[in-house]
């Protein structure tokens, strides 16, 4: 458990709090998901609702990885958010946890392939791409995507990447820029 040594109690609480805060904000988007699903279901494209919003749900992991810069922070950030969601009003049960692991690990992978050195657009884009690939691989099985027609698969993949890049990349960058300007991260940012 060498990686665990780098984590301080306040880091752990911080990452869990951010996950819960984001979860509380996302709850306000549930209606967007419901409306989109209901509108798109009759034409068999309801997956688009999921694809469009998935970047938002993967944001805690990508942001935690980018902000805390500790090994495992992206995975842990997303996993903690999922654990809390599972107990608090999440009706998806254990599959929330599995999604949390895949999303968190997907985000982490982007930072791993850039060797935890590129905390810039390269790292963020890599993270958005790996999150898209890993979660898409999981959805091939879980949501039966492997049975879909090819054009739809490509459409879903592209939309998912755009969503990841917009929410996990651009929005994360805008948020962390605000944090940098306010100099609040001095204590944790240097790790």
């Amino acid at each position: 458990m060498k990686w665990a040594k780098a984590w301080r109690l306040s880091d752990i609480i911080l990452i869990a709090l951010i996950g819960i805060f984001f979860g509380a904000i996302f709850m306000g988007t549930n209606y967007v998901y419901d409306v989109l699903t209901a509108v798109l279901a009759p034409v068999g494209l309801s997956g688009l609702a999921n694809e469009l919003l998935l970047g938002l749900w993967c944001m805690p992991g990508m942001l935690a990885g980018y902000m805390l810069r500790l090994k495992g922070s992206a995975t842990l950030g997303e996993l903690l958010a999922a654990t809390v969601e599972m107990f608090f009003g999440g009706q998806w049960g254990i599959s929330t946890l599995i999604s949390g692991v895949t999303q968190g690990f997907g985000a982490e992978l982007g930072y791993i392939v850039t060797r935890y050195k590129h905390y810039d657009w390269l790292g963020l884009t890599a993270s958005a791409l790996t999150t898209t690939i890993v979660t898409f691989g999981w959805d091939l099985a879980r949501n039966g995507y492997f049975k879909l027609q090819l054009w739809l698969l490509i459409l879903y993949f592209v939309v998912r990447f755009c969503s990841m890049f917009l929410f996990g990349g651009v929005l994360t960058r805008l948020i962390t820029d605000l944090l940098d300007r306010s100099h609040v991260l001095k204590s944790t940012h240097t790790n």
Binding site: A41, L45, S46, A49, K147
Partner: peptide
């Protein structure tokens, strides 16, 4: 949603 996606656009 999942049902209709497969039913309409599946293979």
């Amino acid at each position: 949603g999942l049902w209709s996606t497969q039913y309409i656009n599946g293979s």
